[in-house]
Simulated scan of single mutants.
Amino acid sequence: MSQRIIDPRIRLRHIACFLEVARLRSMAGAAEALNISQPAATKTVQELEALLEGQLFDRSRRRLALTAFGEVFFRYASTSLAALRQGIDAARGAHDAAIVRVGALPTVSAHILPDAVRGFTRDNAGVTPRIITGPNGYLLSLLRTGDVDLVIGRMAEPNAMVGLSFEHLYSERVVLAVRPDHPVLTAGHFHLQMIEDYQTLMPTPDSVIRPIVERILLAQGVTRLHNEIETVSNAFGRAYVRQTDAIWIISEGVVAEDVAEGQLALLPVDTSETLGPVGFTTRTDTLASLATVSLMQAVREVAERLRRTGA
């Protein structure tokens, strides 16, 4: 039985360009990242679509989006490129590289990762942790292409977990944070609809907690947010709510230390419905390096300590 041969006209440059456009959702952004012209990037993607006999991107929106055909191809193409990179590293004797690349959602980078990295670097001299933060979709795209070794954060929706595995560490909820002397804290009989009178900092549409936030707001009759700002920046959110009457809707881990130190306060609203799992997301088709395994264990130990203390 003869094996099916991959069309030799499909080159590595086609795959690399496609993955970069899919990751950035922008032809111009991909061209800049690949150090080629935008027309060259456009031509490369069009060549690939012609060879595959299918449209990879929906070009009717302001930002490019993968078609259903493109989504399927992306999963396999990204996995293949990641496996190729791992094979090259292994052949060069660099399987246990001196860099561990971690994609971390803001809640993890603020709450659990600092202690874990401190312990890891103490016990693993010569290994450099590289921490990359951003929205969940962006980090998962980096994981699929092998640009990060693991992602730490909330578990993604099931349709985004194809080819990936998740290890639960702990659970956390979404909270509403304000400055300690915020006027709503002194109002009697607080209810969630009161936040409509204030500016609100919301997670961005591509963040993993955005659908969760939207569901709880709708369930509580909140339909008219005032002068909404979308951000996943810890630094901006923290600075902005301290200087204004804005209300920050964010994962509890991001503001846990600020609340403990009295820099921020939480609104008295039941958000137990937003409780969700936080943990490791890894690829199912690759083996973690020894350094990556060591860092994961350091994170587990910190998570377990926080779980025991209730921090």
Rank of each mutant, 00 (worst) to 15 (best):
residue 206 D to F: 07
residue 191 H to P: 03
residue 252 E to N: 11
residue 197 D to R: 13
residue 217 L to Q: 00
residue 200 T to L: 05
residue 274 T to W: 05
residue 232 V to Y: 04
residue 279 G to S: 03
residue 218 L to E: 11
residue 255 V to C: 04
residue 246 A to S: 03
residue 238 R to D: 03
residue 249 I to D: 03
residue 232 V to A: 11
residue 255 V to D: 02
residue 263 Q to Y: 13
residue 273 E to C: 04
residue 225 L to G: 07
residue 233 S to F: 09
residue 260 A to V: 09
residue 220 Q to M: 05
residue 241 V to K: 06
residue 192 L to I: 06
residue 220 Q to A: 13
residue 243 Q to S: 13
residue 243 Q to F: 06
residue 217 L to H: 00
residue 286 T to F: 09
residue 267 L to M: 06
residue 280 F to G: 09
residue 205 P to K: 11
residue 205 P to N: 11
residue 253 G to A: 11
residue 253 G to V: 07
residue 277 P to D: 10
residue 239 A to N: 14
residue 195 I to H: 01
residue 215 R to C: 05
residue 235 A to E: 11
residue 210 R to E: 13
residue 197 D to S: 14
residue 240 Y to E: 07
residue 234 N to D: 12
residue 209 I to W: 02
residue 208 V to I: 13
residue 277 P to I: 01
residue 283 R to N: 06
residue 242 R to E: 15
residue 253 G to Y: 08
residue 258 D to F: 05
residue 206 D to W: 01
residue 225 L to F: 06
residue 286 T to M: 13
residue 216 I to F: 13
residue 251 S to E: 10
residue 284 T to Y: 13
residue 197 D to I: 00
residue 247 I to G: 06
residue 270 D to F: 12
residue 229 I to N: 01
residue 247 I to W: 02
residue 279 G to K: 00
residue 277 P to F: 02
residue 237 G to R: 09
residue 250 I to P: 02
residue 240 Y to A: 10
residue 285 D to E: 06
residue 281 T to K: 04
residue 266 L to N: 13
residue 250 I to F: 07
residue 217 L to G: 01
residue 266 L to T: 07
residue 224 R to T: 12
residue 252 E to H: 10
residue 265 A to I: 03
residue 284 T to M: 14
residue 247 I to D: 04
residue 212 I to W: 04
residue 196 E to C: 08
residue 217 L to F: 00
residue 230 E to W: 08
residue 246 A to D: 00
residue 277 P to T: 00
residue 208 V to L: 08
residue 269 V to T: 11
residue 194 M to T: 03
